[in-house]
Design a protein around this nucleic acid. Structure first.
Lengths: 412, 412
DNA sequence: ATCTTTTGTTGTGGAGACGAAGAAATCAGC
DNA sequence: GCTGATTTCTTCGTCTCCACAACAAAAGAT
C-alpha cells in the first residue's frame, strides 16, 4: 500500500468503520395498522381492494386490520351513493370515523388568536377568534388567554360532545417542535420556556407546538397544494419573511429544530440595515418596516397615521407616483431574488407563497414573480404559486400538526 | 357550518381526504439482516451484545442473523488483541469480511480520471489515475477511456482476485442518480444520455452515477466528518461552486435529482455577469474565471500565461499589492455571504468546505470564514470546517456511492 | 473453588403478513 | 331467469421474523 492509500485510509479521522452513523436506528417501519389508517385518511374514501393495491400488501392482510379498526371506532364503512363500478362485487368504501374525537389548532399572532376544531378526518367543525392585546407579554398571561380561547372554541356550535384529543399550537419566534420549548418569541417575554408542557397542563390535554411558518407548511402539506409533492418550499410574508421546507413528504425543521430564516438570507453585501442588526437581509428590502422606511420620501412628507402607511403608498403607486412605484418594484425584485435562491439551493417541486390575501395582491404580482424567478434560477425553475387565504389557515395548520402527532398514539 | 368553515373545507382543492399523499409508501423497514450488516460496517468492529444494544433488538435475534452472515462470508469474527473488558465472558468482535468482493469508484474531471478500489469494509486497496485530453468529448470516447481506466485499476497491485461487484461513477454536470442519465455535462457532448446503462454494459457490471459534488458529499458522509451528523452541507469550489446536502443521514438530491446550485444563487441584484448568462451569481464573484477577469487590472497589464494567472495574482497579494488583495478580499466576503445563506436557509449541523488543498489555502482562510459567516447568520450559525485533501477523495466518494447501492442487493 | 457478571446460544411462542382457496355480490349474456 | 364471469372480501394454513427466557460459556472477584 503506497503512501497516498495510507493517507486515504487514515482520513476517516479516529472513527473505525465507514458509512453514516445514525444514533437510534431509523425504525421507519410503521405497522400496517397505521399505514392503513393513514392511507384511508389520505384518500378520504377508499375500498379495501384499493387499499391493498396502494399499500402493496395482499388483500388478506388488509381485512383483519380494517375490521380491527372498525371495531375500534376509528374507521367506518360508508353507505355509498352507488358509483359506477364495472361488474363484480361492488367495493365497500371506507372512511375514517370522525366522531371518535377532535383535535384543536391554535395560533397566536401579535394582534389576535385564532383557533379551529377539526375532526379526525381533517374536516373543520368549529372555529374561534380573539383579539390580542399586545401588552400581555408574560407567559402566564398567554396561558390564561389560550385557556379562554380553548373554552370558547369548545362552546362553539358544532363542537359537539366528541372529546378533544390533542392540540397544536403555533406562535412566531424560535419554537422547537421536538422539545416543545419556546427559545424566544417576539410577542412573549421569557426565553427557553417549555410552553408545550405549560399549555398542556393548563388545557389538560397533550399539546404540540411549532413556529408559525411551520403551521402554514403543515397546512399546505395536509390540506393544500403541497399534498402529492415530495419536496416543496412555503414562503410567507407577514411581519417578516418565513420559510418552511418539506423534504420527502415530511416537514424539515433544520438541525436545530427552529425555522429556516429566508428573511435573513443576505441579498446584498453590506446592504440595508435589518431589524436583526445585520445588513443586507432580504427582510430589510421586502418586509413592512422596510417599505415604511422608504415611504416618507415617496409620500413627500405627507405622513399618514401609523398602520396606514403601506395603503397610502400603494394608492400612490397606482396613481402613477414613480417613487412609490419604484419602492414596490425594488421590493418585488428582491423577493424574486430570494425565491430564486431557495430554488437554486433546494431544488423544490414548487414554491408556494402563502399568507394573508391582501399583501400579495398589492405587493407582489404572481406574474412578475413567475417571470423574474426563473430568470435567476438554473436547472428547472419550480412553479411559483400564490395561495392567498384568510387567517384561519394558520389554525388549520396547527390542527394538522396535532393530527400528525396524535395519530401514532391513537393507533398504538 | 358557516361560510368561512365551508371555504376552509373546500380549500383542499379537488382531492378528498387530508394528509400527505405519498405514491409508493415509504417502505423504510429494513430487514434486520441489513441493519446488522450496516451497523457492523459502520462501527468497524463490534460485538454481538453491542449490536443488540445499538439496534435495540434482543440478543437472541442477533445471533442467528450474524451466523447467517458469517456463513455467507459477509462478516467475520476478529481474533482480537485482548482488549480490557471488565469481567464476564469476553465479547467476540465482528467485522465485515473484506475479501468477499470489491467496489470501484471512478471520477471524471476535465483534466484527469481518478479511480479507487475499495473493499466491502470501505478500505482502499488500489487506485489509479489517467490524464484526460479535453478534446475527447464524445460519449463513446468517454466509454473507451473509462474501460482503460478500469482495466488499469484492476491490474493494480492490491486489487487481488476478489471480484468487483459494483462501480460508482461521478462526473460534472447535471447527472441524475436515480435514472442514471446524464442530462448535460461540460466535458462531454450529448444530452440526456443514459451513461449508467452504457458504462454498465462496457464494464460488465452494475454502475451508479452521480454528479461530482455528490461524490464529495458521499465521501464526507461515509468516511469523513459528516458521519454522525444528521444534517450538513458540503461546499466545493473547483471550476464552479457546488453544494451537496445531507438530510437525516441521507444525501438529498433535490426534486429533480440534479445537484443544488449554490454557485448560481444570487448575491447581488443585477450583479456581475456569470458564465451561465445570468447576473449576480455567487460564481461570478468567487470562481476562477471571476478572479481572472479582474486580475488584468491588478497585475497592471503584465499578463502571465494562461493557467498561471491566479498564482501570479496571489503572489502579488502576498507582496502587498492592494488591488490584488482587494480581489481576494471581495471574493472571500462573497463566499462568506453564500455560506451564510446556506446556513440561514438550511440550518445544517455543519458546513464543510471541501476540495483540493491549494485553492482554500490561498483563496479563503478558514479564520476569515469562521468570523464572517456567523455575522451573517441568525440562530445558531453552524461550524465551518475546511477539509482540504487530494483528488482521490472524489474517487473514494464514488466508491461510497457504489457501496451504498450495492449493499441492499448484496444482502437480498 | 465458588459466585458474579457478561456474552452468546437455543427453543418456544406470538404477531404479522402472504398466498391460496372460498364465499359474496354484482354484471353480461343466453 | 339461469349460468358464468368478474371483482371484492374473508378465512385459513403457513412462513418468517423477532421477543422472551432459560441456558451454556467464559471470564474476573472473593
Amino acid at each position: 500500500m503506497d503512501a497516498s492509500l495510507e493517507s486515504a485510509a487514515a482520513f476517516s479521522g479516529d472513527l473505525p468503520g465507514c458509512g453514516p452513523l445514525r444514533g437510534a436506528r431509523a425504525s421507519g417501519a410503521l405497522p400496517l395498522r397505521q399505514d392503513v389508517y393513514e392511507a384511508v385518511r389520505s384518500a378520504g374514501r377508499i375500498s379495501r381492494a384499493a387499499l391493498a393495491k396502494e399499500l402493496e400488501v395482499s388483500p388478506g392482510s388488509v381485512t383483519p386490520v380494517v375490521s380491527d379498526l372498525l371495531t375500534a371506532g376509528l374507521l367506518r364503512e360508508l353507505e355509498d351513493e352507488a358509483q359506477p363500478h364495472g361488474r363484480g362485487r361492488p367495493p365497500v368504501t371506507l372512511g375514517v370515523a370522525p366522531s371518535r374525537g377532535l383535535v384543536a389548532g391554535m395560533k397566536v399572532s401579535d394582534h389576535e388568536y385564532s383557533a379551529m376544531l377539526v375532526d379526525l378526518a381533517g374536516q373543520p367543525v368549529a372555529q374561534a377568534r380573539m383579539d390580542r392585546a399586545a401588552e400581555i407579554r408574560t407567559v402566564d398571561g398567554l396561558l390564561d388567554e389560550l385557556r379562554v380561547l380553548y373554552d370558547r372554541l369548545r362552546s362553539q356550535e358544532g363542537a359537539g360532545a366528541a372529546p378533544i384529543l390533542w392540540t397544536g399550537l403555533g406562535m412566531p419566534g424560535m419554537v422547537d417542535h421536538a422539545s416543545g420549548r419556546m427559545r424566544w418569541s417576539p410577542i412573549v417575554d421569557g426565553r427557553d420556556v417549555d410552553v408545550g408542557a405549560l399549555v398542556s397542563e393548563r388545557l389538560g390535554l397533550p399539546v404540540s407546538v411549532d413556529n408559525d411558518t411551520n403551521l402554514l407548511t403543515m397546512a399546505e402539506l395536509w390540506f393544500g397544494r403541497g399534498r402529492g409533492l415530495s419536496d416543496f418550499a412555503v414562503v410567507t410574508i407577514e411581519y417578516g419573511v418565513g420559510l418552511g421546507l418539506v423534504v420527502d413528504h415530511a416537514p424539515y425543521r433544520g438541525a436545530h429544530g427552529h425555522g429556516m430564516e429566508l428573511g435573513h438570507t443576505k441579498v446584498q453585501l453590506d446592504g440595508a440595515l435589518c431589524r436583526c442588526g445585520q445588513r443586507g437581509c432580504l427582510e430589510a428590502y421586502v418586509a413592512d418596516f422596510a417599505l415604511v422606511r422608504e415611504a416618507a420620501v415617496a409620500l413627500d412628507g405627507e405622513v399618514p397615521p401609523r398602520g396606514e402607511v403601506l395603503e397610502a403608498l400603494y394608492a400612490q403607486a397606482k396613481d402613477g407616483n414613480e417613487a412609490a412605484r419604484a419602492i414596490f418594484d425594488r421590493a418585488g425584485r428582491y423577493l424574486a431574488l430570494g425565491l430564486a435562491n431557495v430554488a437554486n439551493l433546494f431544488d423544490p417541486n414548487r414554491i408556494i407563497l402563502s399568507g394573508s390575501r391582501m399583501r400579495y395582491e398589492y405587493l407582489y404580482a404572481e406574474e412578475m414573480l413567475a417571470e423574474a424567478v426563473p430568470s435567476m434560477s438554473l436547472n428547472a425553475p419550480p412553479p411559483i404559486e400564490v395561495n392567498a387565504w384568510d387567517d384561519l389557515v394558520w389554525a388549520r395548520g396547527a390542527a394538522a400538526l396535532a393530527l400528525a402527532d396524535l395519530t401514532p398514539r391513537l393507533l398504538a
